[in-house]
Amino acid sequence: MSEKDIKKEQENTELEDNTANTEENNGQEQAEETVEETGSETKAEAELAEMKDKYIRLMAEFENFRRRTAKERMDLLKTANEDLMSELLPVLDDMERARQSMEATKDVDAMLQGLELVFHKLKHVTQLKGLKPIVINAGDDFDSDLHEAVTQIPAPSEELKGKIVDVIEKGYTLNEKVIRFAKVIIGA
């Protein structure tokens, strides 16, 4: 073999060694990347499991809140009028006593005074709870937000055309909300 051939062979051997080293290094890097990927995948899976657990707990907590709120609302609806009824019980007792005294006495003036007292007591209790009558006079303008036109009659005078002529039934508001519209007759 000539010196050239020996040099070429040495170069080839060095090249093969370098290639082998490079492949070995690449294999190690790939193995490290696989280990890193596996580590990051398990970390991601752990985070995902943790998030799922939090989600499930949050949904359960919300469902419990919804049920509790619905139950509280039903309890409130059942006892909403308790305060009003407690306030009306003395009026009911007074009405019972008035009825008993009407059977026993023939004095009309005394019965009227007793009924008047009971009526004022009832009116006072309802006003305390926010019930107010809608004040309407003949000749007032018709307002569809407060009044319900039952019928129209020929206006007694030219001034009452399109205006309220008579009130059939009082209207009421409860804390500024109309709970019964006033039934009125309008002049045509």
Rank of each mutant, 00 (worst) to 15 (best):
E169P: 07
L112N: 12
E116P: 00
L117I: 12
A155D: 04
D166L: 14
L128G: 05
H120T: 11
V125A: 02
H120L: 14
K132S: 14
E116H: 15
T126N: 07
E159C: 06
E116F: 11
H120K: 10
S157V: 09
V150N: 00
Q113R: 10
Q152C: 07
H124M: 09
L131M: 05
D141I: 10
A138N: 11
D141C: 06
E116G: 09
M111F: 14
K170T: 15
V135E: 15
K123D: 14
K129T: 07
D145G: 09
H124R: 14
A138R: 11
P156V: 01
A149L: 08
Q152G: 11
P154Q: 08
E158V: 10
P133G: 03
Q152W: 07
D109V: 10
T126S: 07
N137L: 13
L117W: 08
V165Q: 14
T151H: 02
H120G: 11
F142L: 03
F142N: 03
I134A: 02
L160I: 02
I168Y: 07
K132A: 10
N137T: 13
T151N: 02
K129G: 09
F142Y: 12
L131K: 06
P154H: 04
A138V: 07
L115H: 04
K129F: 14
G130T: 05
E158N: 15
P156M: 06
A138Y: 08
P156A: 01
I136G: 00
T126I: 04
I168N: 03
F142P: 00
L160Y: 09
I136A: 02
A110D: 12
